[in-house]
Design a protein around this nucleic acid. Structure first.
Lengths: 217, 217
DNA sequence: GTGGTAAGCAAGTGAGTACTTGCGCGTAAA
DNA sequence: TTTACGCGCAAGTACTCACTTGCTTACCAC
């Protein structure tokens, strides 16, 4: 059904995430896409062009959850965001790991993979600073480090869960909930009592993405 | 000075960290070590043997800071540990990134690279649980997630600082201090007023390791 | 039909890969 | 002096890689 070009881009992203740039041979990508290797070159000219385009598309297509511009109901907002962001990072974990591992050799992929995280972290930082200005978060904490810490926690979960799964809660949603709780406590936001302060907090919204298995995104 | 075997192991770890398994050609490793390529094979038999041994040694030789078994003076203990652990992860960041990027293709390196983190996270978790038993930390927080969150924050710093340096505090020590503060607040440990609760907290111990430059470990 | 376009197939090129074989040279213990 | 060993050098093997060329086939608009 899908065009040959799309099949090649999909296959390239998949193979690249699994085996890295050097491991992603044009032969294997073409085979995975079910097309002739020559067709790959006719469409993209070179392996490099194809893989860069594939990585770009893999990052653009996946919808990245945004942290709200202005805080309103902090606790549920944060819980929702943490859950969605963790699911998102988990979905992209394989290609992120591979790209990060090749950063020193191929720094040209940094913008393809690092733009979204930067926006997210800066957004989270601005969110915390706004809370501080409104007197709803502790003014003494360093908003930058807080944003880095909790994005980092989600990032580390996505990167490390495949490697040491026994350390984590089985359920991604449970983990997200705990991370959110710790975040709120760290920045000094009081959760309103009616919502069940700790322990089993209410699921915020539908969260369909992200299976915690070893399958690639 | 150093034996040929050691020179080869060093060079192999360096080249592997830079270019990954496929990129680390025997030719380049031998050249980097200043020995003949044939000598490499006479010593280690195969490229795989050499690289596995090199990665193992690179992880063993670097002294990993331990979180204390039983908590006494929590705030300074944590501050010291966070600083040392961040420096340690920063030092190994290149080889960690590369290994993680190849986990799916070469899972046999997981134990070489993942043993230390596991111990650290479990130790941190036990430390928090002990604090909770002693009534010095909030009993409602999830110790497992707290340990994962704050080790994850340090891990993410070490992995991401090269990629988006403008997001981070320039000084590793300052960053560590902020992470420690957030950790203490998240698990509900009150810092005693005499020690300078926030802001410029006292440096705990000598911390010689880890330069934040781009040079490889 | 006729032309154009997109795809497959066969074969090959030149470079790089891990790894081997055989030989020679220097040092140092015997 | 002899022997053994560690190392370098030259050459080569069998393989894989990205990428090219030339030719054929299938489809689709006109």
């Amino acid at each position: 059904m899908s065009s040959i070009r799309e099949r090649l881009l999909d296959a390239a992203a998949r193979v690249y995430a699994e085996t890295g740039y050097r491991g992603a041979t044009t032969r294997r990508i073409a085979q995975e896409a079910g097309v002739n290797e020559i067709t790959l070159f006719r469409h993209f000219g070179s392996k490099t062009t194809l893989i860069i385009e594939a990585v770009r598309q893999a990052n653009l297509r996946s919808d990245c959850p945004e942290v709200p511009l202005t805080p309103s109901e902090v606790a549920p907002e944060i819980r929702t965001w943490v859950g969605e962001e963790l699911a998102h990072l988990t979905q992209l974990r394989s290609i992120i790991r591979t790209s990060l591992g090749e950063v020193e050799e191929r720094p040209e992929i940094i913008p393809l993979i690092g733009e979204k995280p930067r926006e997210v972290i800066l957004g989270l930082r601005a969110y915390v600073e706004q809370l501080q200005r409104e007197g709803r978060a502790d003014p003494d904490i360093d908003a930058r480090s807080a944003a880095l810490t909790f994005f980092g926690a989600l990032f580390a979960d996505a990167m490390g869960r495949d490697v040491m799964p026994e350390l984590y809660h089985e359920s991604l949603e449970d983990s997200a909930d705990h991370y959110a709780t710790l975040f709120l406590r760290a920045i000094g936001v009081a959760e309103n009592a009616g919502n069940g302060v700790r322990g089993q907090a209410p699921r915020a919204k539908g969260r369909a993405r992200g299976e915690p298995s070893l399958a690639n995104p």
